[in-house]
Design a protein around this nucleic acid. Structure first.
Lengths: 180, 180
DNA sequence: CACGTTGGTTTCATGATGAAACCAATACGC
DNA sequence: GCGTATTGGTTTCATCATGAAACCAACGTG
């Protein structure tokens, strides 16, 4: 059967993954953040098949995450650059990298260090913070329905409230709303 | 051909994605952070096929991200809970959620709000920070080879240095080292 | 010890991925 | 202008992953 889409789910994580969650896509974005712009460089640096790279780049452009433009030089020279939407993905990749550094490390330590250009020092550890700056773990937060929550999402949270510590979740966050 | 593995790449993002980058996996983790523990609840809340859920849970347990234990009640009642490694994934999901809230929004706004239990206020926006607290964008950082960088990674960065603003990337980060 | 509940596995149809071959647009040498 | 190298693809085919539904097994309960 056809792969299920996350794009209609009532969850920003699901909808984000619909845009960048396919195999290879986040690594293509990593490359873009490292400065890669040309098709061949993406292909060589990643070792990805060219048909797949072509399909992913096309989707990323269609989704407004990369933009394509012509460049001078021999051949049909093109450039793929991050848009504002693409650049805003930076914290996600850094969070993923720090988690990988810690829990999926290469022998010898982190393969790449990210340093602040101004101070010349490594960047800080990424943390979820309260407005007043306290570091928050998952246990320190509560998830509540937001303004865009659909009926099923609200029902789910009501039920989760009811069964606090006595069992399972509730209705469902899937197929709760139509796409944006 | 068989799907290519990211696990041997010399990049923490690739290695992290090898552990949690498959279709559905991050949504399963989202559910876990929302408090879901039982097989049926994951299945209902996500709308995932049961064979896929079974396979994903098995892998997440094998990878030390979830842990399985028996629970009391009718039937063969099991529980899947986040380990320390799993809980450390929290910032990644929050970063992804905030990006989704902004760029893949549901009609009406964010479907879920995350509020600090103590203050009762929404959490702060996640940002990459310098050690001294300055907010850093991708343009404000430099990527340099770390202690775990392999030969190809180092070569790649050297070359990137050389061609600064004149073209493409360099060697490659793929197949640079053996797995941890 | 039959029965419902829970947590799977099996089977089969279909889509996604990977490798290599093939194709097209552009700049450049001449 | 014309052939050719470079770049950026598309096509083809074999294999793997995904999804849905059917089937199966462990456990607690009456």
């Amino acid at each position: 059967m056809k792969r299920k889409t996350f794009g209609r789910m009532n969850c920003s994580i699901a909808r984000a993954l619909e845009l960048v969650g396919e195999w290879w896509t986040m690594l293509i974005l990593r490359e873009a953040f490292l400065g890669t712009r040309r098709f061949q460089d993406f292909q060589r640096n990643l070792g990805i098949a060219r048909n797949i790279l072509s399909a992913r780049l096309k989707k990323l452009v269609a989704r407004g995450i990369l933009q394509r433009s012509a460049a001078r030089g021999g051949g049909r020279r093109l450039e793929y650059r991050l848009t504002e939407k693409g650049r805003a993905f930076f914290p996600v990749l850094m969070a993923l990298m720090q988690w990988g550094d810690r829990f999926a490390a290469c022998a010898g330590g982190p393969p790449v260090r990210v340093v602040d250009r101004v101070a010349g020092e490594p960047i800080a550890e990424l943390n979820v913070l309260a407005r007043d700056g306290r570091v928050l773990s998952a246990a320190d937060v509560r998830m509540v329905p937001g303004p865009g929550a659909g009926a099923l999402t609200r029902a789910r949270f009501r039920r989760a409230q009811a069964v606090k510590a006595s069992g399972g979740g509730g209705e469902s966050l899937h197929e709760d709303r139509s796409p944006a």
